[in-house]
Amino acid sequence: MDYYQAAKLRKEWKEKGNPPCSHSDREKERLNGSLTGDAVCTTCGHEAWIYKEKKAE
């Protein structure tokens, strides 16, 4: 998800009263096409995680 899309999503989520979110769906964050190394919640836009690929077992 693009950084600016996430920022818009965070603003909209806050306008809804900032309800609880489980942050269960995340995507890699990009800024101007480059990965930031973080991930953002696709529901509320929260960004806090260092994105790590799941290893195949």
Score class of each variant (00 low, 15 high):
residue 29 E to I: 12
residue 55 K to T: 05
residue 20 P to T: 00
residue 14 K to C: 04
residue 49 W to K: 12
residue 54 K to R: 06
residue 14 K to A: 13
residue 15 E to Y: 01
residue 39 A to Y: 07
residue 31 L to K: 15
residue 53 E to R: 06
residue 54 K to Y: 01
residue 2 D to I: 02
residue 51 Y to P: 09
residue 37 G to C: 06
residue 35 L to P: 14
residue 6 A to E: 03
residue 1 M to Q: 02
residue 21 C to L: 06
residue 16 K to R: 11
residue 4 Y to E: 09
residue 43 T to L: 07
residue 40 V to T: 02
residue 56 A to K: 13
residue 39 A to P: 12
residue 3 Y to V: 09
residue 52 K to P: 05
residue 25 D to K: 11
residue 48 A to T: 14
residue 23 H to K: 07
residue 6 A to Y: 06
residue 51 Y to T: 09
residue 8 K to D: 08
residue 27 E to F: 03
residue 49 W to P: 00
residue 45 G to E: 01
residue 29 E to S: 04
residue 10 R to W: 09
residue 36 T to M: 04
residue 24 S to Y: 07
residue 53 E to G: 12
residue 46 H to Q: 13
residue 30 R to F: 15
residue 37 G to S: 08
residue 38 D to E: 15
residue 33 G to A: 07
residue 25 D to V: 11
residue 57 E to M: 01
residue 31 L to G: 05
residue 41 C to V: 09
residue 28 K to D: 13
residue 20 P to F: 01
residue 13 W to L: 02
residue 54 K to M: 02
residue 30 R to H: 14
residue 50 I to L: 05
residue 5 Q to S: 04
residue 47 E to N: 11
residue 10 R to V: 04
residue 36 T to C: 01
residue 56 A to L: 10
residue 25 D to M: 08
residue 56 A to Q: 10
residue 21 C to Y: 00
residue 18 N to Y: 13
residue 42 T to M: 15
residue 54 K to I: 08
residue 1 M to S: 05
residue 2 D to P: 06
residue 15 E to R: 03
residue 44 C to I: 12
residue 45 G to I: 03
residue 48 A to Y: 15
residue 55 K to G: 08
residue 18 N to I: 00
residue 17 G to F: 05
residue 12 E to K: 08
residue 36 T to Q: 03
residue 1 M to W: 04
residue 23 H to G: 02
residue 23 H to R: 09
residue 28 K to Y: 08
residue 27 E to Q: 12
residue 50 I to P: 03
residue 40 V to S: 08
residue 13 W to K: 05
residue 13 W to T: 00
residue 34 S to D: 14
residue 44 C to T: 13
residue 16 K to T: 06
residue 21 C to G: 07
residue 34 S to Q: 15
residue 22 S to Y: 12
residue 25 D to W: 11
residue 40 V to W: 13
residue 7 A to T: 10
residue 9 L to G: 01
residue 17 G to W: 11
residue 57 E to Y: 05
residue 24 S to D: 08
residue 35 L to T: 14
residue 9 L to H: 01
residue 32 N to F: 15
residue 11 K to Q: 11
residue 57 E to K: 04
residue 23 H to F: 10
residue 8 K to R: 11
residue 49 W to T: 05
residue 44 C to S: 12
residue 19 P to E: 01
residue 44 C to N: 11
residue 43 T to W: 07
residue 29 E to T: 08
residue 55 K to F: 07
residue 51 Y to D: 13
residue 5 Q to G: 01
residue 17 G to E: 04
residue 40 V to M: 06
residue 3 Y to E: 07
residue 9 L to C: 02
residue 56 A to F: 09
residue 2 D to C: 00
residue 6 A to W: 05
residue 27 E to S: 06
residue 29 E to F: 12
residue 1 M to I: 04
residue 47 E to A: 14
residue 9 L to N: 02
residue 46 H to L: 14
residue 36 T to A: 02
residue 15 E to N: 09
residue 47 E to W: 10
residue 22 S to V: 08
residue 54 K to V: 02
residue 40 V to P: 05
residue 31 L to E: 14
residue 11 K to V: 05
residue 8 K to V: 06
residue 2 D to K: 10
residue 57 E to F: 08
residue 29 E to G: 01
residue 36 T to D: 03
residue 47 E to M: 14
residue 23 H to T: 02
residue 8 K to P: 00
residue 52 K to G: 01
residue 4 Y to I: 01
residue 34 S to K: 14
residue 6 A to K: 02
residue 3 Y to M: 10
residue 19 P to Q: 01
residue 7 A to Q: 12
residue 1 M to K: 05
residue 37 G to Y: 04
residue 11 K to N: 07
residue 39 A to C: 15
residue 42 T to K: 12
residue 50 I to E: 12
